[in-house]
Nucleic acid binder design. Structure first.
Length: 286
DNA sequence: CCTAGAACCTGCGAGC
DNA sequence: TGCTCGCAGGTTCTAG
């Protein structure tokens, strides 16, 4: 389940194995994988041909490959099960291979987008002056971005009438945080997921952001988290950060701080994991 | 405008 | 053995 650290690992893989190569042709094997490309699969495949790939960029969970000498970029989102693989031509097609991109060189490898659940996909978009694809202009900077504005984030939390985990997952406020790292950061900060954002003091917001950054940097250091074969990095290697998760997936296991059994609660069609002692529920549920 | 919740999608494992 | 059902969850759309 790729969040910011996993996507960044993929971005680095693309920088190493795909940047500065010229596209020969692209093949769309499943139209849903390019549904965000409104002009359709044929248009997507056609317009890639002949272009040289620039240096890959990322914001939150989105990454994109600029096409050199154009104002366009190939935007990628991995959804929940998407993978970008660089494979030798002779490797048989993966069961859920959705898009194949071949290059006009003799390196013998191609770029593949593989996605079981097809929540992710590729699309081609105009970029603005700062290089950002136009369709993700609403995505906030992520907490590892040097230009992320901690103070503006705090003011937004104070202004909103929502709860802290919802806010962490709101990509227009702070991007790159998903269900796993939200639970991890909240556990570290000893904050309950239903804490109203308007009650956070500036020091608490600062502390929380520190934990978000710490948990993401820790995941990055070991190459991203994965729980099964659904997520692999650009070379097909799984990450193994899950060994050091403190909250996510630990229902019934002792809290690593106080030994109280951890709980799981259904929340927004998913789950929240927390320690009932360290992370006290707010007095008034909003 | 703002917030909450459902829909989208497929494979896996538990339970019957 | 084979079926159903719950669960995994990021983003977008819709309802209130």
């Amino acid at each position: 389940m790729p969040e910011l650290p996993e996507v960044e690992v993929v971005r680095r893989g693309l920088a190493r194995w795909v940047a500065h190569r010229t596209v020969a042709d692209a093949e769309v094997l499943h139209p849903r994988a390019v549904r965000r490309h409104l002009a359709g699969p044929d248009d997507f495949a056609h317009r890639l041909g002949g272009h040289r790939i620039g240096t890959p960029s990322r914001r939150g969970k989105y990454l994109w490959l600029p096409l050199e000498d154009t104002d366009q970029a190939v935007l990628a989102h991995l959804g929940m099960s998407g993978q970008l693989l660089v494979q030798p031509h002779e490797v048989p097609a993966e069961k859920h291979l959705r898009i194949r991109v071949r290059f006009a060189d003799d390196l013998g490898t191609e770029l593949r987008f593989v996605d079981q659940r097809t929540f992710g996909g590729l699309s081609l978009h105009e970029t603005s002056a700062d290089g950002l694809p136009d369709v993700i202009a609403h995505i906030a900077r992520d907490p590892l971005d040097p230009l992320f504005d901690d103070e503006a984030f705090h003011r937004a939390l104070r202004r909103k009438r929502t709860t802290i985990k919802r806010a962490l997952l709101d990509q227009s406020l702070i991007s790159g945080v998903g269900n796993i790292y939200a639970d991890e950061a909240l556990w570290r900060a000893r904050l309950h997921y239903e804490r109203p954002t308007a009650t956070l003091t500036r020091p608490r917001t600062t502390e929380l952001l520190g934990h978000v950054r710490d948990v993401m940097n820790a995941a990055l250091a070991v190459g991203g988290t994965s729980f099964d074969s659904l997520y692999v990095n650009i070379n097909g290697e799984s990450g193994y950060f899950e060994r050091s998760l403190d909250a996510y997936g630990r229902e019934g296991l002792p809290c690593r701080r106080c030994a109280t059994p951890m709980r799981r609660r259904p929340w927004m069609n998913r789950s929240s994991y927390y320690c009932p002692k360290c992370q006290r529920a707010p007095r008034v549920t909003p």
